[in-house]
Design a protein around this nucleic acid. Structure first.
Ligand SMILES: [Mn+2]
Ligand SMILES: [Mn+2]
Ligand SMILES: [Zn+2]
Ligand SMILES: [Zn+2]
Lengths: 145, 145
DNA sequence: ATGTTAATGCAATTATGTTGCAAATATAAC
DNA sequence: GTTATATTTGCAACATAATTGCATTAACAT
């Protein structure tokens, strides 16, 4: 298997972004987690490796290029996850369901669960759908039992 | 038809809340709008009639009692709408779809559109579903044509 | 009318996000 | 390798949003 860092560097170059330390670090962190990652968490982990403003700009650039997608949790906090595939600067394809655990507060991308089509009142034109389920994640409902 | 203010006063009493000016004003404003109302808008309309902190606390109390429900728009801003019925301090029944217009940014409660049940991976226990559609609302897609 | 408790307003604090600009650095051209 | 260029970063200042503690006020039960 190919080196992970090398893959990330290619990803940056492909999107016309320079391979800088903060960008690679964000990709490393996000890829090492099993759930979407909040901006505050990233900020904490990166510490003084990168300025807070830089982090905001890195995330914004990644989102615009279709490298990551943003999910707002029930408190309105932004969480980020690497896009699985096929996303580009022009279009995101992340219309899967997100699951926000009430206990551990993690946000899982349920890539396999698609959002069902919807019948809306006359006149409304649906562009995108965004479905967040809340409850207990698999790991937390285990612990409860 | 019964006086609107009288109805609101009953609503407050029923929920063990004193009938104060800021609370009645918030109910008046929310009930006079066809879409969910953002905190900043409420703050602006109420002006110096009520302190900003009071507004936060009124909204929080109403939400806890099941008088209003909160909808986060795509920017994570909180918007509020009066609950249609059956909501209480212990449980909200607002699992209808919300529509966030990309043009006018209004958020409509599509009370008639229920969120379809969902099949999630084993272990996950869904408690609530939250579906926001984005696109053009009826009024805005009229104007475009 | 009075007392009790809930609710408000104000000040201070904390958190969150944005902007402008100069310094640093990745990359391409030489 | 050196140099030129455009991008990216870090810092400071600013702006906005939300929270907390506490003294004052007002609702309402008696
Ligand atoms: Mn996702
Ligand atoms: Mn609603
Ligand atoms: Zn969990
Ligand atoms: Zn609209």
């Amino acid at each position: 298997m190919e080196n992970k860092t090398a893959r990330f560097e290619k990803l940056l170059v492909k999107n016309g972004l320079k391979r800088t330390a903060p960008r690679l670090q964000v990709l490393e962190i996000l890829s090492g987690r099993d759930s979407a990652t909040s901006q505050p968490y990233l900020e904490q982990v990166m510490g003084k490796d990168a300025d807070r403003v830089t982090l905001y700009r890195v995330l914004q650039a990644f989102e615009e290029k279709g490298i990551i997608h943003k999910v707002l949790d029930q408190q309105g906090t932004a969480n980020y996850a690497i896009c699985s595939d096929g996303c580009s600067a022009h279009e995101h394809h992340d219309e899967h369901v997100h699951f926000n655990c009430d206990n551990c507060h993690k946000i899982y991308c349920l890539d396999t669960v698609k959002i069902p089509a919807l019948k809306v009142p006359a006149g409304f034109k649906v562009e995108h759908l965004n479905l967040i389920a809340t409850g207990l994640c698999a790991s937390c409902s285990d612990k409860v039992n």
